[in-house]
Structures are given as C-alpha cells and as structure tokens.
Amino acid sequence: MIRVFEIPAVSWALTAVLSTAGAYHLYLAARARQATDRINEALHALMHAAMAAMIWNLAPAALLAQIGVLAAAALWFTLQAIARPEYKLLCTGAQGRITCAYHAATMAAAALMLTMMNTPTTGPGTTTSGTGTTATGTTGMGTTGMPHMKMGSMDMGSMPMNHHTTTAGTGAGNPLTSLFTHQGAPALILAILFGAAAITFTTLLLRRQPTTGQAKHHTKHNNRTKHALEATGAATMALMFATMTA
C-alpha cells in the first residue's frame, strides 16, 4: 500500500481540509443559540484539530490529554443519544439519536486512532532483548516493531520507544500492546465503515430535496452543509485508517 502521508502534498491537502472544517465548526459554535449546540460544535472543532495534529505528529506531550478529551466527547454524544425524550436540548427523534450515536462513534474512533498510532506493535518476526524490541533482519537496539509510518515530515518508524518492551506472541503481559499487535485488521474495518459513511453522506448531499418557501430553503442549505461536513470528515477518517492497514 502507498503510504499517502509520505507525500507532502497529500499531508498539506488533508491539513487544509481538516483546518477548514474545524474553523467552520467553530463558526457554528459561535452562532449557536443553545449551549448544547455550542458544546457539540466546539467538540467537533477539537476533533478536527486533533486529527490535523496526527498527520504531523504534533504535541506528543499532550497525547493523553487528546485521547481523554476525545473519549469524554464520545461519552457526551452517547449520553445525548440515549437521553430521555423530555430533555429537549439533547438529541431527540430517531434521526437526531442516530446522528449523535454516529458522532459518538467518530469521537471514539479518533481516540482509537491516536492510541493505535502511538502504541508500539510487534509482529511474528520480532524478538526482545534487555534493551528493547528489535525486528528480525535489522540491526540496532531499542527499536520496536511499530509500522514504519511517515506522517508529513515526521518519521514515525524512527521514534524511540524504549519504554515499551514486549515479547512477540505474548505481549509481555501488557493487554494494550497485545490488543494492537496486529492493528491492520481493526484499521481496515474502520476504514471500510467510514468509507461507507462518506458515501452515504455524499448521497444525501447530492440528493434533490424539493423545497418551498424561504424557511425551507434555509433548512435545506443547512442540511447540505452538514452533509458536506460529515462526508468530508468520514472520508478523511477512512483515508487515515487505510494508511494503518499495511
């Protein structure tokens, strides 16, 4: 598979898309009249900023904080999706609940992506020593079996990860490392799911909806804008997960 993030033009294009979408969510948050809508749009803006930072491996010191915020956002949208109908400020109606459930899944997937990209993996051809994990057929010590990924101009494969030492096949008792030993399968599943979501939102965006009156025209415009944002976000998530399958 071609690692698209090794191509600077692709990295800059994705960064521009994510930055534009994040800025628009901030704009929507500033214009929102209800506190719930402001929080939701602000969380979407934060997610887009975190995804843009992933491309260039920025702010590694704030990794746990980013994962924590995204996980909290996933819980927030989940609570909205399952809230009782009496709470009118939260997700109401079947369509609203489905939307909130999808946003919860998106936030959780972004947190998972951060975790997968920063968790060392081991493969069948790796062994461990007292200094670190070394891939079979390579020289040097203190490296891991983490896939050689370049995000923008940062070489992920050359980052020192000496504090994670695992044994191939066992995970050295670390369940988190064992979970992501073979991260290609879950990444492929998520890439397919978000690819399907991107197609769905694009179909909704292109579908003609007859409207009459200025109010309905304004509603149609807002829906098309939301569908465009959702399609862009889903396509970006699908592409980023696809680069992690190899």
Rank of each mutant, 00 (worst) to 15 (best):
M1W: 04
M1R: 12
P8F: 05
A13R: 12
L14A: 03
T15R: 10
A16E: 11
S19P: 02
S19K: 09
T20Q: 12
A21L: 09
A21P: 00
Y24E: 12
H25Y: 13
Y27I: 01
Y27L: 09
L28T: 09
A29W: 02
R33W: 08
R33T: 14
A35L: 11
N40D: 14
E41F: 15
L43K: 00
L43D: 00
H48E: 13
A50R: 04
A53E: 14
L63E: 06
A65S: 11
Q66K: 15
I67K: 09
G68H: 04
A71Y: 07
A72F: 02
A72K: 07
E86W: 10
Y87S: 11
K88G: 06
C91W: 04
G93Y: 03
R97W: 05
R97M: 05
R97Y: 02
T99W: 05
T99I: 08
C100S: 15
H103P: 01
A108E: 01
A108L: 10
A108G: 00
L112H: 05
L112C: 10
L112M: 12
T115Y: 02
M116Q: 10
M116D: 00
N118M: 04
N118E: 08
T119N: 02
G123P: 00
G125V: 04
A135Q: 15
T136F: 12
G137W: 05
T138D: 05
T139F: 11
T139Q: 12
T139L: 12
M141W: 09
G145D: 01
M146A: 14
M149S: 04
K150G: 07
K150N: 13
M151V: 10
M154L: 13
D155R: 07
D155P: 08
S158R: 15
M159G: 02
M161V: 03
H164A: 15
T165Q: 14
T170H: 05
T170D: 07
G171Q: 01
L176Y: 06
T177A: 14
T177S: 12
T177C: 12
H182D: 14
L188N: 06
L188T: 03
L190S: 01
I192E: 05
L193V: 09
L193A: 15
A198G: 00
T203F: 12
P210C: 04
T212D: 12
G213R: 00
Q214P: 08
Q214K: 13
H218A: 15
H221G: 02
N223C: 08
N223W: 02
R224V: 06
R224H: 10
A228E: 00
L229F: 06
E230N: 15
T232I: 06
T232D: 01
G233D: 05
T236G: 01
M237R: 00
M237I: 03
L239A: 15
A242W: 08
